[in-house]
Structure formats: C-alpha cells, structure tokens
Amino acid sequence: MEYIEATRQVGARLADAADHTAAAGAVQLAIEAWKSLAGSDLAWDHFGLELLDIRARLYSDYDDVVVNAAAPVRDDAETRQALTALVEQLARYHERLAADDRDDLARRLSHDASAQQLRRAAAALA
C-alpha cells in the first residue's frame, strides 16, 4: 500500500472508534516518515522527538503493530499534508481519551499532554 493511502485509512479508523491498534499504527507511520525524510529540514527533528516521546510513554506495549505500507520517498506538500492530517486525528483521539472519566486522572493527563505534543508535531510540519 502507498504511504498516503495508509495514512488516510489509519486516520479513518481513528475517527471511527477508540482503536488502540490504529493509534499505534498512526504512531508507527509517523515515525517511519521521520526516519525516511529527516535530515534536510529541522522541522522533522522536532516532529520526530515529539513522536518518539509519545511512543515511549503510551505505545511501548504495541511494538508489534506494523502498517504494511511503503515508506514515503519525497518530502513534498502532499506527504506533509497527509501526515499532518493523521497526526491531527491522533491528537483528537487522545483528546477523547483525556475526556473519558472512566480512566484515572494520571492517565487522562498523559493523554491530554500527548494531544498537545501531537499538535506541536503537526505544526512543525505545516
């Protein structure tokens, strides 16, 4: 599957329901983009650091989740737009989790902080 199509499919799954596997897939796709495209623009470094922190804090139990998609090959407007949309959808997912009072306060605060980090990451690429 092409990278852009993968970001759209995973983003749609995130929008539909509380899907932890889709969220882990979104993180994996974002980190793959950072690995493939970093180097020419410092925005990618900022983006990558935010995503690595979120993965370590919230997705360490999901290391086996892999999205079967080719890595992005170009740092162009279409790739950045697709990735930014995916990261924004992931931020909304974490905002929903932060608002869910079934979780304890510490976990909800962690989700809220992650949503803010994801918004900063998306803004770095915009």
Rank of each mutant, 00 (worst) to 15 (best):
99 A>I: 00
71 A>N: 13
45 D>W: 11
21 T>A: 10
97 L>N: 15
28 Q>M: 11
59 Y>A: 01
51 L>Y: 03
68 N>E: 11
62 Y>I: 00
75 D>Y: 03
68 N>Y: 04
51 L>S: 11
46 H>K: 08
33 A>H: 03
32 E>S: 15
50 E>M: 02
54 I>C: 00
66 V>M: 04
32 E>C: 14
69 A>I: 13
50 E>W: 01
22 A>V: 02
73 V>S: 15
20 H>L: 14
30 A>S: 09
64 D>F: 12
63 D>I: 05
45 D>S: 10
38 A>N: 06
87 V>H: 09
32 E>D: 14
74 R>W: 08
37 L>G: 04
95 E>A: 06
40 S>E: 15
73 V>W: 14
92 R>D: 08
59 Y>R: 00
39 G>R: 10
51 L>M: 14
86 L>N: 13
24 A>R: 11
61 D>F: 07
70 A>N: 14
28 Q>K: 07
29 L>V: 08
56 A>Y: 03
96 R>F: 06
31 I>D: 06
35 K>M: 08
52 L>V: 01
95 E>K: 05
24 A>N: 03
63 D>H: 09
44 W>Y: 04
92 R>V: 05
61 D>T: 05
98 A>E: 00
48 G>E: 01
51 L>N: 11
45 D>N: 10
25 G>R: 09
91 A>G: 13
35 K>A: 05
100 D>A: 00
26 A>V: 12
88 E>A: 10
96 R>W: 01
32 E>F: 12
64 D>P: 05
97 L>Y: 14
91 A>E: 07
